[in-house]
């Protein structure tokens, strides 16, 4: 393997609901920095059916080149055809680094490609850097349940690959006039040869606010005492119009469904206000919420690590504080709403 043949930082551009997924735009932002430091190109790989028009979005967010595989066989994500396309692209154009969003699709695809190439793959990265002269990728991630951070290297194989947590990296501000080069690629795949078929896609739209899209997230942990005590978290979230989050141990205790888990093995959230209530604040939880705008912690234990990761803290029993909080919010919130409405009316008058 001649390392000099491998050039460029690549991002796998995941397509979701006819658009490039937010995590892929974030990766273009992170990839741009790596490419500039290394003095090389940033490329995206776009696979799908009728996806060529999306390439312009990738340019606006920082890509220099987009490789496009556009074919009806790629209508739904399936490991086999996608893997064969991306594998083909890697062998033809030899990237030095290839990044994927750590989404169900990105992880599935990356694991398959890593085995076939073969090369090293680092999962759920939260920090990325590159050595300017050697091109060695420094991919760091929380390890062992988030108790430590580890930097993983892949010294002897190219491309170096990593999946990266959504909402950790920052997308660049879009530059509407920015363009780049589209490279159209083809690979001959026959539907009859495919071993899997997507029969149906079911979107589960719930009335509840999606936790990764909510402006306010109220998360509870073991400090709520019991499944019954945890209901206070739901009540506070309802009072504020927010979504409910949870630490890993209460999900494992069965107090709430896995969809609500915030942290390394759950969802990453970046709301405007994040409440961590009765949550000790292990790094595995903190990595999932540390980019929130305002973090408020309530915990009985003054030495709980969560107080190191919050903006404001209350040392106290959640079972006492939270009911008071709910009561006061119910009193005050109508006043605030009226006040802002009044202000608006005056403004319009």
């Amino acid at each position: 393997m001649n390392f000099d043949d491998y050039r460029g930082i690549w991002v796998y551009l995941e397509v979701k609901d006819g658009k490039i997924a937010p995590v892929s735009l974030e990766l273009l932002g992170a990839g741009r920095k790596l490419a500039d430091k290394r003095g090389t190109e940033l490329a995206g790989v776009l696979i799908g059916s009728n996806v060529k028009p999306l390439a312009s979005t990738a340019f606006v967010y920082g890509a220099d080149v987009v490789y496009v595989y556009d074919d009806p066989i790629f209508e739904h994500y399936r490991t086999e055809p996608y893997m064969r396309a991306l594998h083909d692209c890697c062998q033809k154009h030899k990237p030095e680094v290839l990044l994927y969003g750590a989404t169900p699709t990105g992880k599935d695809l990356a694991s398959a490609i890593a085995t076939d190439l073969p090369t090293g793959l680092t999962a759920d990265t939260t920090m990325l850097d590159i050595e300017e002269d050697t091109g060695l990728l420094l991919a760091s991630r929380p390890a062992f349940g988030g108790n430590i951070m580890a930097t993983i290297l892949c010294k002897k194989y190219r491309p170096q690959m990593a999946t990266v947590r959504p909402k950790v990296m920052k997308a660049l501000s879009p530059q509407p006039n920015r363009t780049g080069k589209i490279v159209e690629e083809h690979i001959s795949l026959r539907e009859e040869e495919m071993r899997t078929k997507v029969l149906e896609v079911v979107r589960e739209t719930t009335k509840k606010v999606r936790i990764d899209e909510a402006d306010i997230v109220v998360a509870g942990g073991k400090g709520m005492g019991s499944k019954e005590g945890f209901q206070l978290i739901h009540q506070l979230a309802d009072a504020l119009g927010g979504a409910v989050g949870a630490s890993r141990d209460v999900v494992e205790a069965g107090w709430i469904d896995h969809h609500h888990q915030v942290g390394q093995t759950g969802v990453t959230v970046t709301p405007k206000i994040y409440f961590a209530i009765g949550i000790s604040g292990a790094i595995q939880h903190v990595v999932g919420m540390q980019n929130s705008e305002l973090i408020i912690a309530i915990n009985k234990d003054p030495n709980a690590p969560i107080f190191q990761s919050c903006h404001y803290g209350i040392v106290g029993d959640a079972l006492e504080i939270v009911p008071l909080l709910i009561e006061r919010i119910k009193e005050e919130l109508p006043n605030i709403k009226t006040a802002s409405k009044l202000k608006e009316e005056i403004h319009h008058a």
């Binding site: 390890a143 951070m149 290297l153």
Partner: peptide, 11 residues
């Protein structure tokens, strides 16, 4: 194993 852990540190 292509990947190696180069260092571990406290977060």
């Amino acid at each position: 194993s292509p990947t190696i852990v180069s260092k571990v540190w406290a977060p």
